[in-house]
Design a protein around this nucleic acid. Structure first.
Length: 593
RNA sequence: GGGGUUGUAGUUCAGUUGGUUAGAAUGCGGCCCUGUCAAGGCCGAGGUCGCGGGUUCGAGCCCCGUCAACCCCGCCA
């Protein structure tokens, strides 16, 4: 293609197709940069080569779709363009064909500043730009590398249904009404979870799929309602084997994409450690600024906010007393309020006049400073309250400070496994347990009796007592997440493969025996026919491509993304449908207002 | 559901304390030009200041509402 031409092609007769990227008309000679997916090449129209082509080139304009025949020749002395890969040569045109003229574009290609609204409406034009062309090519290569890596290790790529069944738990489903079965609906898959486990029952012992998933939840820069996962499952396996296999895959992908060497094995951190040290289950380990525990140091101190709190934690900013101004602290206080903090206590180490320091005896302050290993000139932020709230707020503050103070080194690819997740979270408002990973995740063998006992307790009409909640939230799951630079790339677990244990898990999550039967009966039954132990993992392909391409949003690695309001501006979807279609589907709309 | 940012020629932006005919660059159109490469020179066209309402003698600017894009909270097993 045009962008591939080099001096090795000198003298060759070539046929090129592409778009007019720019046109420089000198009257007697016309230069055009011809662009295709591979890049630019200069083509030259001159009367000496072809009077017809030269004359026809007069009406060329930007983005005309054209084809040319011509011959490759060297540029004259001093006329090479070092900024083009093809800059040593040019193509003298003998014949020009204009396939399609182009109206002036609504915006210039490759201009990052253009309103995204406009770019999304004309996505076909934005796709011609280097940015998207490069990102899509990178995504293609990542997918090819994934396929090769997994194929080499005996995995089969198998497709699972898009029209499937709504299941409780998890995100809101996208629903598809059934024409044949009035009043019934398919759901689009939030992930192929159940199908891939059934594939294991079906003997397809190493499966993968680059699978489209659908979740009808609100969007973010890294969240689209339809997105792609690399979804994997294998039988006769262990957590260690899975971590090893997939850290190998990720190291391979990072090396192939950005050339960085990630040394396997990658570090593993327990969920509890991650929460305590980084205030996040997906810690960004590219920088320090770790949280410290000040609960003991503040026990019984004179400052009621600390002494009355179940947990007090600190975040020490070295030299922060100078680097962070009062107005910045005010802004940070507003920041943490968004996450439910009542305020943001701080002391400037060595300065006893601050609002918090004034409330503490000298010795108490000294104890706290020592516990935080803080030095004069440091700024020490505090979080006091329930453990989950405190670590969450300080974790978010840590990330913000890391960004604001420029503490995050670029060019690092810090991979991390987070392991030993709790099996359940307790929701006090709803009075029920939720699966932290998903309901198919297995527990550590030593915890199985705990599950069995409380499931039986519920079966006998019992309720979730405080004792049950305490014991069950202490249960650890065989689950693991992979984190890259503070972004959750993927996660998985060793699954439950025994019908009885799966029933217990559903019971503990509050499903009635009837619900279990209607929603998951086929799965439970499948587990009674010789199910291999199995486990798997799924990675967010869009996020991975986003990080490896260094772009700020997954929209930038998706050919046709949706807006934050979940619209496709180009296709103008969603849109209304005919009454006839609705009738066939046995659906009536009720639009308020 | 909530908080925030943005919205002015095709595009990116400027527009003073509310004051006459809303500017620049780029793009677009015409003419000139045989070595440019973001070509150059001359000339020209191009505006519902997102939309609706209000305040005012007077609104791009102030107020209220609304729409859209984006960022975030909630939500996303």
């Amino acid at each position: 293609m045009g962008g591939d031409l080099r001096t090795s092609h000198l003298g060759q007769e070539v046929t090129l197709f592409g778009w007019v990227d720019s046109r420089r008309d000198h009257g007697g000679v016309i230069f055009v940069d011809l662009r295709d997916r591979t890049g630019l090449v200069q083509i030259v129209f001159e009367p000496e080569t072809s009077p017809e082509a030269h004359q026809a080139a007069d009406r060329l304009r930007g983005e005309y779709a054209v084809g040319i025949r011509g011959f490759v020749r060297a540029r004259g002395e001093g006329l090479a363009n070092p900024r083009l890969a093809t800059g040593e040569i040019e193509v003298a045109v003998r014949q020009l064909e204009v396939y399609n003229a182009a109206r002036p574009l609504p915006f210039p290609l490759d201009d990052d500043g253009v309103d995204e609204n406009l770019r999304l409406t004309h996505r076909y034009l934005e796709l011609r730009g280097k940015r998207l062309t490069g990102a899509l090519a990178a995504r293609h290569r990542i997918m090819q590398q994934m396929r090769r890596y997994l194929d080499d290790r005996g995995f089969l790529e198998i497709e699972t249904p898009i029209l499937t069944k709504s299941t409780p738990e998890g995100a809101r489903d996208y629903l598809v009404p059934s024409r044949v079965h009035p009043g019934e609906f398919f759901a689009l898959p939030q992930s192929p979870q159940i199908f891939k486990q059934i594939l294991m029952v079906g003997g397809q012992d190493r499966y993968f799929q680059i699978a489209r998933c659908f979740r009808d939840e609100d969007l973010r820069a890294d969240r689209q309602p339809e997105f792609t996962q690399l979804d994997c499952e294998l039988s006769w396996t262990s957590q260690d084997q899975i971590l090893e296999l997939f850290e190998g895959l990720m190291a391979h992908l990072i090396h192939a994409s950005v050339g960085a060497n990630v040394s396997a094995p990658i570090p593993r951190m327990s969920w509890l450690d991650a929460m305590n040290r980084y205030g996040s289950d997906k810690p960004d380990t590219r920088f320090g600024l770790e949280l410290c525990d000040l609960t003991d140091a503040t026990r019984g101190c004179s400052f009621q906010v600390f002494s009355g709190a179940p947990v007090v934690k600190g975040l020490r900013v070295p030299g922060g007393a100078q680097r962070i101004s009062r107005s910045q602290i005010d802004a940070l206080t507003d920041f943490v309020r968004k996450f439910g903090a009542k305020g943001l206590a701080y002391v400037k180490v060595g300065d006893p006049s601050g609002p918090v320091a004034k409330n503490l005896a000298e010795a108490e302050l000294a104890t706290i400073v020592a516990a935080a290993a803080a030095e004069p000139g440091d700024l020490l932020f505090f979080g006091a309250g329930e453990w989950g709230q405190v670590v969450d707020v300080l974790g978010r503050l840590r990330l913000k400070l890391g960004q604001d103070l420029g503490l995050i080194p670029q060019g690092l690819w810090n991979l991390l496994w987070v392991v030993d997740f709790p099996m359940f979270e307790y929701d006090a408002t709803e009075g029920r347990l939720y699966a932290m990973h998903h309901p198919f995740t297995s527990a550590r063998p030593s915890d199985l009796p705990v599950l069995a006992r409380w499931a039986a307790h519920l079966d006998e009409g019992g309720t979730l007592t405080p004792e049950a909640i305490a014991e069950l939230t202490a249960v650890k799951a065989n689950a693991y997440d992979m984190v890259l630079n503070g972004v959750e790339l993927g996660g998985g677990s060793i699954r439950i493969h025994q019908a009885e244990v799966q029933q217990q898990a559903f019971r503990l999550l509050g499903l009635t025996p009837d619900e279990i039967k209607t929603k998951f009966g086929f799965m439970i039954e499948a587990f009674t026919y010789g199910t291999p132990p199995h486990g798997g993992i799924a990675f967010g392909l869009d996020r991975l491509c986003m990080l490896l391409s260094g772009v700020p949003a997954i929209r930038d690695v998706i050919a046709f993304p949706k807006t934050q309001q979940a619209r496709d501006l180009m296709a103008a979807a969603p849109g209304g449908v005919d009454d006839k279609q609705l009738k066939e589907l046995h659906v009536r709309t009720v639009v308020e207002g």
